[in-house]
Amino acid sequence: MQELKNQFKNFDLHKKPRIGEDAIQGLLFIAGILSIFTTLAIVYELGKEAWLFFGDPEVTLAKFFGTTRWQPGIGQFGIWSLVTSTLITSFIAMLISLPLGLASALFLSEYASLRARSILKPILEVLAGIPTVVYGYFALLFVTPILKNIFGDVVQVYNMASAGLVMGIMILPLISSMSEDALSAVPRALREGAYAMGATKFETSIQVVLPAALSGIGAALIIGISRAVGETMIVAVAAGAGPNFTFDPFQAAETMTGHIARISGGDLSYNTIDYTSLFAIALMLFLVTLVLNLISQQVVSRFRERYE
């Protein structure tokens, strides 16, 4: 034993180069930083083509923001026809998903027993996991016929209302789970304070817990909008194939995403105005969703700070 110990007697605590360790750390760092390059690549590629689009002598900002017909092939560049339909479908979606999502979050976090939660939560998760193209099928072949039955022939085969409604159902689980997180992050002390004043459970939930969770719910709303604006397949299938400047939700109108999907699905040659215009639209989409996501993240992290 003594002998064994002697072998260790002289030791050196100085740093020794560990090439393997350093190489691994380098590789891991590259993996970590790659996401930054993804973002840069998105900005660069979308920006480059969008620059080419706006650089075209035919395209002017006045035309882009000042007119309402979009058909780059024949020199019409009014983005509004795509933007309004995006806004209308998103608005309808939020009209559905915000109240329903918030109400289900309130029920799940304030009222549901553990048993009820264990049944109800997975249903929402299944709803969240269904591919959007399936929702598109549902919108076109189930919801649109129902709308036609109710409202008659004013409802076109492709229409924004049906796409928006189904998009609302699709976003509901997201709003619900984010709101539920916000509600359950409200400290118990606050609920107890309310109960101690002689408040009922309902008064506590609605008048104390809900206002306290409001910023978290706001973040859910913003993420929901971002999701609605970027959603493609439901609108591509059910909202219509062709730009249409209208405010009538029962009419067909193509959204920004739907337009990109339809045009890029065809035979598209590089270096045409059709090609670059898609990138200009995609850049707008990216920037809008980026800003919405950033705001939402800020709101959520402030909200967490407040209650930790």
Binding site: A189, E192, A196, G198, A199
Partner: peptide, 28 residues
Amino acid sequence: RRKIGMVFQKPNPFPKSIYENISWGAKI
């Protein structure tokens, strides 16, 4: 609880104005 009030270990005012903190219990 209406008849027996409680003050907690850590102050837990509601995320409302000072005025509403007082008036809320009375209102409900």
